[in-house]
Structures are given as structure tokens and as C-alpha cells.
Design a protein around this nucleic acid. Structure first.
Lengths: 333, 333
DNA sequence: CTGTTAGCGCGTTCAC
DNA sequence: GTGAACGCGCTAACAG
């Protein structure tokens, strides 16, 4: 009833060679006579031998496994990133240990994953907590942040310039004649991760407007439990347009407006930020910042492979270009 | 520059005990004098010692890791299942190796994951291919199918009764006065995974209707590349209602109808099958079968833990109850 | 309650 | 081109 019965020894015996030789052919080492290689391969197939990756990991100190941390796999933003990560990972023969880290337990989960001897870690999230940063600094396992910046610039990361993107979004709305643009986001984006908010402020400043705190809307967590209330608040405010962090949230607002007879985009404009498929599901469809989500994940993983191979000249902080997709939730630009 | 420098030996030396004792306190073995336990724990903290899970896995033949295979992490159906799996897994201290297996490579990926010595595997997918079934039968690593049935009843699985669910859905539509109900699904649901289709047929039969093949609509892959074409076809057909496998697809159809002036539900009814959040995003909102997605994942993982612990009396084939959520894409029931 | 001793399955020198 | 031997870090008997 063992998981794995046939070992490298069995193969060696059957093929009448030493285990060292079997190891060589399994690892593609060239110094093996073609005939014995063939013999060994034959036995391997016959015995259905499969190298034990755990033993291999112990001996070689490499597991060809990377840890991937994210807050919520059901969130389209993160699963899009994860897809990019996964594709590149499998291209480079790495496996992925996926961990849904619910905020508080993050550093525990991280420690756990490090104990598995992963060769590298990709971290995604709404923010970078101090406990996680500490854990990262204490280990020398390569680390990359995907879709998130490190304010201190210490940790490699791949992201877009959200400040610029939000600046463009809000400025565009002003240019279209909207007067009072709100900003809606979950908590972290008002505390530890201010890229987007700063873009909003910058646009305000350039337009010569004061920050009006009654136009700032905060939702509690990523599952948006109070999403409906917030939408109601927004409708009752003097806002005639809003930029939203997260498509799920933007969709809630949109449906609330439409369901209550507010005309989008005539009376109210909505710009969202992730361009996931949700933007084309709602009516009206949503104008959105378009971060290359898949690519952010893919590039993150690519950089991680370089880090793991200790390659030189690695671009540590990549800012990918973003686009802007005009749809029906705003007037023509 | 090693990943892990401090080993159990270092702790033993520092604490002036044997490594066996250290191992005992790390593993919560009770046979340790409280005072030495405290001493060891102190050293562990001081040295920031973290047990090497790979070595542990090799010695104990257990990795506390399970493999999870799915076709597409960005698909809401699968990510909802994955969330349930993940929660229960972390509850039982298991890690998850996640693999996005794109159809053809499935058995390769599976073999790969088995090489990592996972303690168990959960498989999700649109169908169960022969190559995968073969691989499953060849190993004695515990296996569970989530959201999928094994026609032959050999492999443990957790699912709802889709035949019954679709039967109810279609019958309900007939009861509401719709005459020509179509069936829309991706390819596998017309070939290897007929639960849903059979429910459709059953309802037809009970209603005394002949199967009209012009009411069967097939989409090519899970990414629905030809989704728009299909929606067009459906609109051009004589169907006045449709049951759809997959919310993403249903949403495409809905939007196509509405965008082209077809009145839903007055002229055309839509019933979808997964009740993901998408159903409340579109307008009109979608009536849907409600499979308890999270629970299917959770129960799958729970069963897997039992299997891994070789517990007796394991319910191998679980059929979870489903509900039916009435929304605006159908007339009142 | 604690220490000693074998392995777990494989990679990797170092000889031959 | 091939084999013998050691070690990776830890668990699991077995003594004491």
C-alpha cells in the first residue's frame, strides 16, 4: 500500500547497472553509453519507475516548486494573475503550491510554505503587511510581488503604474464634463497601498479642485459585504461619476444605479480598474483601465525563474504598460 | 546562500539534547519533560529553526500535500470549488499543489504531481479521460473527483445530481408555457459527461416531446470562443428558452438576446446551472440551478482526508442536494 | 523521559 | 563510461 514501491535501486538491479548510472540517464547526463542508456530507459518504462521528487529535493536542495500566495482565488483579478503565473511555471517545469492566505494568517502560511523548501515565492495581495515583509527579509528564498508594489523598493515586483492610470481615468472624466468624481475602494487602498488614491489626488489637483472627503467611499473587505449600502451612499452623494478599485465593486455600483433609474453614462459615469470579463457582462459595459493581468503574472514568474537561477542583470522592478478601454459607462472621450 | 541553514542538529546541540528529543517536541510528542521541552522551544525560537518538510516527507513518507487538478482557474465554477477545497485543506494542515491541466497534458501533469509524493489528489474537470482514469487506477494514492461523476462508479466523487437538476429545470420551463427548450453546453457535455443532457432528455420525454436536434447547441471549448456565434444561432432558431451549462455561457446568451431586443423572460427564457455571482450581475438576473459549489469542494477535501488516514466507513460517492434559484430570466414558477 | 541507530530515495563526488 | 560511498534533514523503532 505504499505510494511508491519502485525505486532507483530496483531499476539499477533490473538493468544491471549501478544506481548512479540510472540517476544519470534520468537527469539527462550525457556521459552514458547510448546502449546502456537505452537499456535503462527500457527498464524504467517496464517498471513504471517515477523518480521520487521528495528524495530528489532533499539531495539536490531544489524542489522545482514555487509558492504562490493570494488573498482570494475566486477574485477575477487574482485568478487572472494566477493563470499567467501558472502558464510560465509549467513552461519552466515548476509546480505551484497555492495558498489562499486570509490576511491575519499570512506570515504563518508563508512560514509553512517556506518549510516546504520552495525555490521561490510569488506574493499577491491588496497590501504588503509588515509581518510578511519581515518574513521575506529573513529568508533568502527569492521573492516577487505580482500586481503590487513595494513602497520601499526592496522587493522585486511587477505591476502597472496605478498612480498614472488613475490620474488618467479621473482626468478623463473631468474632460468629459463630469464635475464631482468619487473614489471607491476597499480599505487597504486608503491605508497601505496608496498608488491609486494618489493618482486620484493628482488629477484633482491638476483640475484645481479641493479634495472633498464626502466623495471618498470605503468598502470593508474584498468580499464587499456592504457593497449595496455603499452603492446607495454613492447615489445619495453629489458625485456624478466614480472611479472604482475592483470590477466586482464597480459592477455592484453600476447595477445599483441602473436598477434605480440613474442614467449611465448620461447622469453618472463609472470607470473601473481591472478590465476582467465582468466589464463586458454588465449593461452598460464598463470603461476600464486595462492592466495586463495575465502578463503581470507571467512576467512575475519569469523574473522569479531568473532569480532562482541566480542570473545576473535581472530587472527587479517592472512596470508594465496599461491601456484604457472605453466602453459605455462613460461618455465618449 | 542556502535556503535553510539551521537543522535539527543545530537545535539539539544548542539545547544539549539529542535530535530525537528535538524531533519529539517539534512533533508534539508528549513524552518530553516540560522543562526540556521549554528549553528546546527556546532554542528553536532563538535560532529561527523551521523543520524541513522535504526531509520530513522523505522519512515519514507523508508530505501533507495534496494535488489539485483543474482545467481553468479563472472559471468561476472551478475557483469556487477550489476555495472550498483550500479551506478544508488548511483546516487539516494540508498544502495544495495546484495544476491547471489543459486537457491533453492531463496525465503528464498527474504523473508529475504523483512524483511529488502528494498524499492525495482531487480532480476537477468537464470530463474524465481514459488516460487519467488509467493513471488513477495505477497508483494507490487516494483520489476524489469534485463536481464530476465517475460513470463506472470506481472513483470516489462528490457532486450533485445533475440529471435530476436539469430535468427539473427543463420541466419547470415547460410548466411555465415555454414550448421549445434548447440545451447549450461545451463539447464534453455531449460526449463523455451526459448527466445534464440526460436530464434534458428525460424532461422532454415526460413532456411527450421528440428530441429536436436543431435545439442542441454546442460550444467548442471552455473559453467559449464561438460564444457570440452560438448566441446568434440560438436567436435564429425556434427555441423560446434554453438551459445552459455554465454561467459564463448563459451570460453571453442573455446579453446577446437583450442587446438584440429579445424580451427575457417574456419571449425567451434562460436557466443556467452554476449560480455563480455572474447570475446577479447580468440583467435580467438569471434563474439558476444552485449546486453548493463551495461545499462540493469542501466535502471532497474532507473525504480525501479520510481516505488518506485510511479511515473505515467512508462514504465514497456523495451526492449533495441542490436548490433552484428563481430570478428574472424566467417567468414565475 | 531520552539517546542511538537505521534508513527514506536520490544526487554527487571520487575513484576505477 | 561506470560504480561505490557518503550525505541531504528528519522519523521511527529500539534501547536504556
Amino acid at each position: 500500500m505504499e505510494k511508491q514501491t519502485v525505486t532507483i535501486y530496483d531499476v539499477a538491479r533490473e538493468a544491471q547497472v549501478s544506481m548512479a548510472t540510472v540517476s544519470r540517464v534520468v537527469n539527462g547526463n550525457t556521459n552514458v553509453k547510448p546502449s546502456t542508456r537505452a537499456k535503462v530507459l527500457d527498464v524504467i518504462k517496464r517498471l513504471d519507475y517515477r523518480p521520487n521528487a521528495v528524495a530528489r529535493g532533499l539531495a539536490s536542495k531544489k524542489t522545482t516548486t514555487v509558492g504562490v500566495l493570494l488573498p482570494d482565488i475566486t477574485n477575477n483579478f487574482f485568478s487572472a494573475l494566477a493563470l499567467g503565473i501558472d502558464d510560465i511555471a509549467s513552461m519552466y517545469k515548476y509546480n505551484i503550491i497555492l495558498d489562499n492566505a486570509d490576511n491575519k494568517k499570512e506570515s504563518q502560511v508563508l512560514s509553512n510554505i517556506l518549510a516546504k523548501q520552495v525555490d521561490g515565492v510569488i506574493y499577491m495581495g491588496h497590501q504588503l503587511s509588515d509581518s510578511v515583509r519581515e518574513e521575506i527579509n529573513r529568508t533568502n528564498t527569492p521573492f516577487v510581488l505580482a500586481g503590487l508594489n513595494d513602497d520601499k523598493g526592496e522587493i522585486p515586483s511587477v505591476n502597472i503604474d496605478y498612480t498614472q492610470a488613475f490620474y488618467e481615468a479621473v482626468s478623463g472624466l473631468f474632460a468629459q464634463g463630469y464635475k464631482n468624481i468619487g473614489f471607491l475602494a476597499a480599505k487597504p487602498y486608503f491605508n497601505n497601498n496608496l498608488d491609486r488614491y494618489n493618482g486620484y489626488l493628482k488629477a484633482l489637483e491638476e483640475a484645481g479642485k479641493e479634495l472633498d472627503k464626502s466623495l471618498l467611499f470605503e468598502v470593508q473587505d474584498s468580499r464587499f459585504k456592504n457593497g449595496e449600502d455603499i452603492a446607495q451612499q454613492i447615489r445619495d452623494s453629489k458625485a456624478d461619476g466614480i472611479v472604482v478599485v475592483g470590477d466586482e465593486l464597480a459592477v455592484k455600483v453600476t447595477n445599483h444605479m441602473v436598477d434605480n433609474g440613474v442614467k449611465v453614462p448620461e447622469e453618472f459615469a463609472i470607470v473601473t480598474s481591472n478590465n476582467t470579463s465582468l466589464t463586458e457582462v454588465v449593461r452598460p459595459t464598463l470603461t476600464s483601465i486595462e492592466p495586463p493581468l495575465y502578463d503581470i503574472g507571467a512576467v512575475s514568474m519569469r523574473i522569479l525563474t531568473k532569480l532562482m537561477n541566480k542570473e545576473e542583470e535581472i530587472e527587479n522592478h517592472v512596470t508594465l504598460p496599461h491601456k484604457f478601454i472605453l466602453r459605455d459607462s462613460t461618455k465618449d472621450a
